[in-house]
Design a protein around this nucleic acid. Structure first.
Lengths: 535, 535
DNA sequence: TTCTAATTTAATGTT
DNA sequence: AACATTAAATTAGT
């Protein structure tokens, strides 16, 4: 009855038209089987030992003696050294680093993308494919596990970082100091906006580094890591507003622009598995807005954000005013922020971010919902809510955290300039072709958004002076010969739009598939002068 | 480095359209009512194994008395359990056994046939269809692989069993002892004849088992395995004649009937995947001719046969006379055996074997050509031809195999009775309705054929006495309730004529589609008393 | 033992 | 139906 495809009728498949040739996928292309042992006659299924994936074997020596050339451990595959049995190639540590990065960007790369990766890393495509498969399986297992745990996690437990303590996340940000993760979903600076696709993907991570006394926004885009650090000392004011239930908007008002970093991956040069370090660089936000606009809006876990802000109040210097969390959970009731509250998203979309409209709109609506919540009313922090100190495990939390100095009265920032000055400011440094000043103006229609939008004077001076602008680096500087460097995280989420927007992979580079028009901005290149990551 | 081709070209597959957003969901498929299906609750990936095995596991007892209920591993539980995404059902071991059998008969069953199978096995039709698809893919892969390997095989290598060492073949015959395959195409015993459709299908396999000191004819028909074993010691004489170039006819003259076996498949009783064993049984040849006619004619590879015969000479007991290979390659010159030499095929055809006349006639003409070759002249074995011992690899051949007791002089069998006695003999046990005594008489026109045709006395005693006749087993004894067991390999090749001969499936049973009139013989049933396969 | 590379199988989607 | 591809499950190797 419910036959699924007509399909009946016997097939006169005399064709055996073998070999699409192109595919090669497969199951072992290259069964070069001089004598591969059919192995046990027990069952035909059992003896897959035959030469499936020969080649590759990254010789083990490179584990210890790392030689950059390890990238292509098997380039001269014809060595014939391999007897037969050699199954199980090992992925080298540096290969692993990159694989993990690629994975964090796109868990299911297309065949074409896999091929790129394979070329870059000197792996067989089959290997790469299998690696991703297994990695996906592992990931699913892991976050299935963590999820299962999360469900079991008592909701009353203190808002420390998730018990899960995502190791891959910490590997991603590779900070040497302990950090406290702040789950977040959305970061907005001016018209520049970054949306996290899912918490699991870690494309947007906020965290606090107590040791270095700074807040950090980490962004993972196109396989590369970006971050900006905000020293506690330049945070002049914070605001907190409840948005959706459980979710809050924290606004940080700075006295100076943050410091920008870019991940530098030295492919196992000399020895040791691929050194990744943070290199200081120029503002990589679109239009360098983060240099000009000193207000940062972060949407994330209400309790965690509240806790972080409260902590600020305790530890940061004198002029910090904690505007405090407000816990009136009435998200739908206050239409203070209408849809127009987020006009910048429209601007972003106008820039060509149209792929996956379904997801986009979904996220957008979610975001709007966030902003339709409580307006930015300032309440004093309810002391009744007592959260323990949020600390990274393995991190000895500072015992005395200056138990909340008396919050002084709210004092608005007088040094803010008008919106008009803002527009003039950044139009004077037209570094990004994709820059859209209009969006900026548009945004200013809402008072909450424009309030701290413009800023003048001293901050401007700080901007890209000693630090390289992305465009200035030579293209040949990339790690791989293959049109390498990532585009800066201009905006939006890193969507690997399986795009078929044509064969753009050759020109766009590593993480660039699907970037679309956004990638018209010149790629950021690594810059490694004396500036190294401080710590 | 031909491994990943297409490397050079710039991946023109912009088409590699990955999920186009919308389809990603695709959960809507929901192609079936929540009925059967093993349905592993998706989340707990680890457990499906236990679920399937435990649910199905035919306990020990029902291995002997195959319970029909095992057919539906999930029938009872099917109710509410399958909540969510019913993914990845697993085919149970016993289902698998039967699927493999069906597959061996017909790789591409029609939709109707699939439906039968699905019903029998308690699978969804969709599952069955997919299983066959995947199985075909696997088969293609496999024999593509083996073929590629076979081509590499040096043709100059000694006529040992092919280096290919067809694992599937060995799986098919599942002998515990090492064996030496004798490629062959045609086996004739009296009017009973078995033609191999192609070597690849393994529907007729001859092999030598040195350990057990016997020759074996293995037949795969209708998904079931049959074999008869001929102990070296009962081979009183052999003949060899060249037939077509490279092909020879070996005749074996026995002192007793061979021993008959039937494959018994115990569907994974208790644990372990489906135990297949050889059960002794009654003569399954048409009219039990193999019990009465002690001459076996085997056509196969000349060199291999010659080698085997020569080996006999060395290892077998006294009264064996090797009539020897004659290597006069003059196939066309001796019309000693005319077309009338093979009247039995006509008889066979008269019995209704008319399907696929194209193939039949083709084979027939080939066979005739074989017999028009050198007449059965007996030459001494040319010692100049020295073949190394044919042994299965990985088999430590027994050093001392009763080093041939002193061969006594050839003594013709005096106890053989006339043809008339023969007819009376087997008419006294009219077990096979389809038995055709006429054919027998007909056959006797040829001296070579009639020489050992009749036999009496002791051999008769050996016949189906302690061994079950196929008919004697109760029909309910089958594993499936559905007219289960195979017909004996009455004659001819196992042709799965996608028959559409109408809905005969309900009565004929598992492998029976397309059997046509031949299936009028009652099916052989499994018999499992104390007799187990010896080894 | 755990982890991971590789294999096998059921299923899906595409053509 | 073939074909490619994948998720799920399993098998091994270190």
């Amino acid at each position: 009855m419910g036959d699924y495809s007509g399909d009946d009728d016997d097939a006169p498949h005399a064709n055996s038209g073998r070999d699409g040739a192109q595919n090669a996928i497969a199951l072992e292309e290259e069964y070069d089987p001089p004598e591969s042992s059919v192995s046990s006659p027990t069952s035909m299924a059992k003896s897959p030992t035959d030469g499936s994936s020969s080649a590759v074997s990254p010789s083990q020596d490179e584990a210890s003696s790392p030689d950059v050339s390890s990238r292509r451990p098997s380039s001269a595959k014809s060595t014939a050294s391999d007897k037969e049995k050699r199954k199980r190639s090992r992925v080298t540590p540096d290969q692993l680093v990159h694989l993990e990065r690629f994975f964090s960007v796109d868990r299911s790369p297309t065949a074409a993308r896999r091929r790129e990766i394979s070329d870059m890393l000197g792996m067989q495509e089959r290997q790469t494919q299998i690696w991703f498969q297994n990695r996906r399986a592992k990931a699913k297992l892991l976050d299935g596990k963590s999820k299962g745990r999360a469900e079991v996690t008592p909701p009353n437990s203190p808002p420390e970082l998730r018990p899960g303590y995502d190791a891959s996340l910490h590997n991603l940000i590779h900070e040497n100091d302990p950090v406290t993760i702040i789950p977040c979903s959305d970061l907005t600076i001016g018209t520049w906006r970054r949306i996290s696709t899912s918490l699991a993907k870690h494309d947007l991570v906020a965290y606090v580094c107590e040791n270095r006394r700074c807040l950090v926004w980490f962004i993972h885009s196109s396989g590369y890591g970006f971050k900006m650090e905000i020293p506690f000392d330049i945070i002049v004011e914070t605001e907190f507003t409840n948005a959706a239930p459980g979710s809050g908007l924290a606004s940080f008002f700075l006295s100076q622009p943050p410091t920008f970093y870019l991940e530098d991956v030295a492919p196992a040069n000399g020895h040791g598995p691929a050194v990744r370090s943070w290199k200081r660089c120029a503002d990589w936000t679109e239009g360098m807005q983060a240099t000009k606009i000193l207000r940062h809006d972060l949407i994330g876990s209400a309790v965690q954000l509240a806790h972080v802000l409260r902590n600020f109040q305790a530890t940061s210097s004198a002029d910090i005013r904690l505007r405090s969390p407000s816990y009136n959970m009435r998200p739908e009731q206050s239409p203070a922020l209408s849809v127009e509250a987020m006009p910048r998203t429209l601007a972003n979309e106008a820039q060509g971010w149209s792929e996956r409209p379904d997801v986009l709109s979904a996220l957008d609506s979610r975001k709007r919902a966030s902003f339709t919540g409580q307006p930015l009313v300032l309440h004093p922090a309810p002391n009744s809510v007592d959260y323990s100190v949020v600390e990274d495990q393995s991190h000895p939390s500072h015992p005395s955290q200056h138990p909340s100095p008396a919050p002084s009265a709210y004092q608005p920032y007088s040094h803010m300039s008008s919106a008009s000055s803002t527009s003039s400011t950044y139009s004077s440094t037209p570094l990004y072709p994709s820059e859209v000043p209009d969006a900026h103006h548009h945004r200013q229609q809402h008072p909450h958004m424009m309030e701290y939008t413009g800023m003048s004077g001293p901050q401007r001076m700080y901007t890209p002076q000693g630090y390289p602008m992305p465009q200035s680096a030579p293209a040949s500087h990339s790690q791989f010969g293959v049109a390498p460097t990532p585009s800066p995280p201009i905006l939006t989420t890193p969507f690997h739009s399986r795009s078929e927007l044509n064969g753009m992979h050759s020109s766009v580079g590593i993480g660039g598939h699907g970037g679309g028009p956004l990638l018209s901005a010149p790629p950021i290149m690594h810059y490694d002068d004396g500036l190294d990551d401080r710590r």
